[in-house]
Design a protein around this nucleic acid. Structure first.
Length: 180
DNA sequence: GTAGGGTTAATT
DNA sequence: AATTAACCCTAC
């Protein structure tokens, strides 16, 4: 089937072969379950991750579509990563943690508190996708270090978000993709 | 450090 | 009421 490279900010993914590897290669590949799942999905739909943020806020869906379709402004990403454009939510500050909007603790049977319930922004998802595209699925600590150094997101958060994205993708893919 | 199961606040 | 997204738990 046709495989169409995804571009982010007008730049092709650094290792499209990894991203678009055929299902057969993924079966015992280095990607693990989630990686294999992604590769399976990607092979079935060249446009894959464009609708990955299904279920999130509408404006984020639109932004993600625009970002993944490109071309966009390359300088914008560097500005974002440097924190110049958007101080929050990428910055991991005490103020952020203590902000009532992000810190909702409650007495619970199982968990005594939750650090935050901060929704992922489209920018964060974009960076996550770019990071996974660069390093592959499963390199969460490396991704944290390289792309989310100052973010409130932990490496486990990154892994969980990726899983949720795949799950959301599968749901919408199941409903809207015609198979032939 | 990661994968995957589990829990729960938020959302629909 | 049911589902989703974010977060927690833990074996490996």
């Amino acid at each position: 089937m046709e495989q169409q490279a995804i571009q982010i900010y007008g730049q092709p993914l650094e290792d499209p072969e990894m991203f678009w590897a055929p299902i057969e290669q993924a079966e015992q590949g280095p990607y693990g379950f989630l990686g294999d799942l992604l590769l399976s999905i990607a092979s079935g739909s060249p446009r894959g991750l464009q609708i990955e943020n299904f279920g999130a806020r509408d404006e984020d869906d639109v932004l993600i579509l625009q970002l993944l379709e490109g071309p966009q402004d390359q300088a914008n990403l560097n500005d974002w990563l440097s924190g110049d454009l958007h101080p929050s939510p990428l910055l991991d500050t005490n103020a952020h943690y203590q902000n009532p909007m992000f810190f909702k603790s409650r007495v619970s049977r199982e968990y005594t508190r939750r650090k935050n319930n901060s929704r992922w922004t489209a920018k964060e998802v974009e960076i996550l996708v770019q990071g996974v595209s660069k390093f592959g699925v499963g390199r969460w600590a490396l991704l944290k270090q390289q792309f989310f150094e100052t973010s409130i997101r932990t490496s486990v958060n990154l892994k969980d978000k990726w899983r949720n994205l795949l799950k959301a993708y599968q749901e919408i893919h199941k409903n809207y993709t015609a198979v032939s």
